[in-house]
């Protein structure tokens, strides 16, 4: 591995930018901070992120989101079926959103800025969740458990939307209460997808 490897260089810069954001916040983090933290030159950072600071911050939020959802995917991969996968995933996701220190800190101090970034990035999160769910839907289809006429692509998109909404806002649901998690998963989310 060499430091010229563009992938690892990019990851190094993003990791450093993330550290800076945790330390200084989104508004105050500068390219200079990231240069110091990463040991990567200003010129190299601009080669990776020609849009400069704004592009780097967008990419940093996207990077952390991807890391978050990868962790989530790893946590639920072994669930026996789609319903259990969604139940485990929602419980894990709600807990980790609440415990995500940086997220909470930024929400406290600069919510508007973070939310603008999250909104643009959420559009990319939906296909990510849908793609993750797809093989589980295929398995339900093979087992003959899908309701007649359900298109797995459409079902994956609908589930991704419901999940993202529930991760963002608990609303009436208490995710510490297993019977409630079961209910929202088996009725609201899967009612139209899995045959009863």
């Amino acid at each position: 591995m060499t430091s010229a490897d563009p992938l690892s260089l990019r990851d190094r810069v993003l990791g450093a930018a993330y550290t800076c954001v945790t330390r200084y916040g989104l508004v105050k983090t500068t390219i200079e901070d990231v240069v110091k933290e990463s040991g990567v030159s200003r010129a190299s950072i601009y080669r990776q992120f020609p849009g400069g600071r704004d592009e780097l911050l967008h990419a940093t939020v996207a990077w952390e989101l991807a890391r978050y959802f990868t962790e989530l995917a790893d946590a639920v991969r072994d669930a026996p079926d789609l319903a259990h996968l969604l139940e485990d995933g929602l419980v894990f996701a709600r807990r980790s959103v609440r415990e995500h220190e940086v997220l909470q800190k930024i929400l406290e101090t600069e919510p508007e800025r973070l939310l603008l970034l999250l909104t643009t990035e959420a559009a990319k999160t939906l296909p990510f969740i849908a793609a993750f769910l797809h093989p589980y839907l295929d398995r339900e289809a093979e087992a003959g458990r899908l309701r007649p006429g359900v298109d797995p692509d459409h079902a994956a998109d609908y589930l991704a939307r419901g999940i993202l909404s529930l991760i963002g806002e608990a609303g009436r649901w208490d995710f510490a209460e297993p019977s409630q998690v079961r209910e929202v998963v088996r009725e609201e989310l899967l009612g139209g997808i899995i045959a009863s």
């Binding site: 939310l115 603008l116 999250l118 963002g168 609303g171």
Partner: peptide
């Protein structure tokens, strides 16, 4: 940015 805080997280509830 005026509305976003109402659409995500804390105030979204």
């Amino acid at each position: 940015e005026v509305l976003l805080p109402y659409l995500a997280f804390r105030r979204a509830d």
